[in-house]
Design a protein around this nucleic acid. Structure first.
Lengths: 193, 193, 193, 193
DNA sequence: CATGAATGAGCGTTCATTCAT
DNA sequence: CATGAATGAACGCTCATTCAT
């Protein structure tokens, strides 16, 4: 009655992550999530007022976890380049380890109604802002070139996000190597000479 | 009796693009698409056997148009770098001009049932393959460094796709400038010196 | 433009018989009947005001044809027993030759809305009345026993109708032999001695 | 909370019997059956996966009930003639008491899609086989004449089924008397002397 | 708190019927 | 007369949400 199960709420949250990531928001049935969580259908509504809220909460707690790990690890890095490398590495390792949740984060552009979408766009913009701040810092320190950081921050995230697809579809599954490839290309470019 | 209305099929296709891009697949009602196209609900089913097929056809014709323009413009370019620049430029201009359709293409990672999703992933992988081929060619010609082209092709597309978000959310709306920024960063990297 | 096709009306009627008998009333599509008749869908409505009317007219003309043959053949028979034998024989031969239409007549108890049903019940009661009259005549002539003719007329038709199922499902396909069996049993009963 | 309402499932089944028998399969609306059963539309689908299944289950449980009564009553009869008389009597009494369900069993030749029809034909053929076995037994015991039992079994059922129409349309409503009439005619025939 | 039976709004789809050509 | 493109009323079914126990 404790230990693994801890409390019903996170039990449901974990089940939701599994089901939503497999089926997507619309195809996922509340009943199935309840079954997966080994609780009654009604119990889900004790903790979450709607399917939408359940999704948001699940997404929020996943992201939070993700961002928590990120910020903790980045604090003890000096060089911005190192920090960026950490972002890439963490992102790819996160995907590798939590394919469930990752599938959702990769799908961040999902089609969902009004508030939900705007809330997710907000979340995404937060991430952009975070990276942009990092790049700005890198320019100040002379580590990075002067660039349009708003654009480059988005490119950075896009490049990292799509490179993560390799872990799903590609044969390439070594996150270490993948991180190097991504950083090398982002830092020094594709051009010869 | 001609001109604007042209034929019902493309009338519906255009309405579908507008509605699907605004509401997403699941929230879009067939009835609303019909109303938007100024035809009866039944008429939609004269031309498309299901909502799913309507979506696919709309998506297909949009993509086709996009890829058509792409391939035509790329043929008369010599340098691979120039070709890649064209890819970026066309992508961003396409977004700028067809925000409706673009919203959908940007959402390419949507959650849709079985076949639909797999079909779209296929489409995406085609694009990856196309870019990868281009990069391979660039390496052969000595224009680009030796890289893991599978990874870099994805990064390239991710960087371009996300940079396009600027056109929706950012203040930056000059595609010319945006293209330069993106290419400069991708070719020469972010690192100083 | 003449000869086989004769006129559109009967062309449609024949197609209707084929399609209705194969699919039943509800599963039959007006469009399919039109196609089968090699006319446009709209043309059907030139001759019949609704699907229901088309069905009725088709049924009516089939029954009429059936009853016409019946009455003509019965006039030149003296004995009532001979007349009843003719009824059985004609019924079974009609089934054998026009399986299409027969399938419908066998299904006379179909589920159809209000008027249609009541009209068909009327038709059936007409047949009952006809047989009842025949049996009454037979009793008057001393050929048949005194019986509750209302009941026996129905039994007679029921026995004949169901025996006709043999032609669809059973191995027995010789209508001559079948007629004898049916008449023998109806006339002399099942009981030994 | 018990007694009349018993359980929802049979509540729906009874309502279905009433509505289907009045309107037939196609004209009956699931919503109306739900209303008749005083439950929500969705509740119907808690117990039956489709309208078709609801119909089948209703039909099955009706038939089962009918055949159960039949077989129980027949066991303690010695003479085959008595058994057949019981078949007739039970059939007619069943109709008299359960006009709802009877209307359906009388309509056994209904037009319904694929499986449903074939399943009902099967059911009918079972009944034929049952009667045929009975008649065979009667012949063995010397109670009945030697006849083509496949044909006669069908005739028997047809005669009984159609005689039952009297209870719906005719003035004759005394099942006792009706049974006698039917048996007398079937056993000893219509012919004088 | 926990449950799951009951609910009904909502939507995709069909197809008889109409009518402009 | 003949046509078939266009129409929309109608219905089966799903599933998020509620609430009596």
């Amino acid at each position: 009655m404790d230990g693994i199960a801890r409390d019903k709420r996170s039990q449901i949250l974990r089940a939701a992550a599994r089901v939503f990531s497999t089926k997507g928001f619309h195809k996922a049935k509340v009943e199935e999530i309840a079954a997966e969580a080994e609780v009654g259908k009604g119990t889900v509504y004790e903790y979450f007022s709607s399917k939408k809220e359940l999704f948001q909460e699940m997404f929020k707690s996943s992201s939070m976890f993700y961002l928590d790990v990120l910020e903790r690890k980045l604090d003890n890095k000096d060089s911005v380049v190192e920090k960026l490398r950490q972002v890439v590495s963490l992102h790819l390792n996160f995907i590798e380890k939590h394919k469930d949740i990752a599938r959702i984060i990769l799908r961040e552009h999902m089609d969902l109604g009004e508030h939900l979408t705007s809330w997710m766009i907000e979340k995404q913009e937060e991430k952009v802002a975070y990276i942009q701040k990092l790049i700005d810092e890198g320019i100040d320190r002379g580590e990075l070139k002067v660039m349009d950081t708003a654009v480059v921050a988005r490119m950075f995230l896009g490049a990292v996000a799509f490179s993560g697809h390799m872990l799903f579809f590609g044969q390439e599954a070594d996150t270490e190597h993948l991180t190097e490839q991504v950083m090398e290309t982002l830092l020094n470019g594709m051009a010869q000479g």
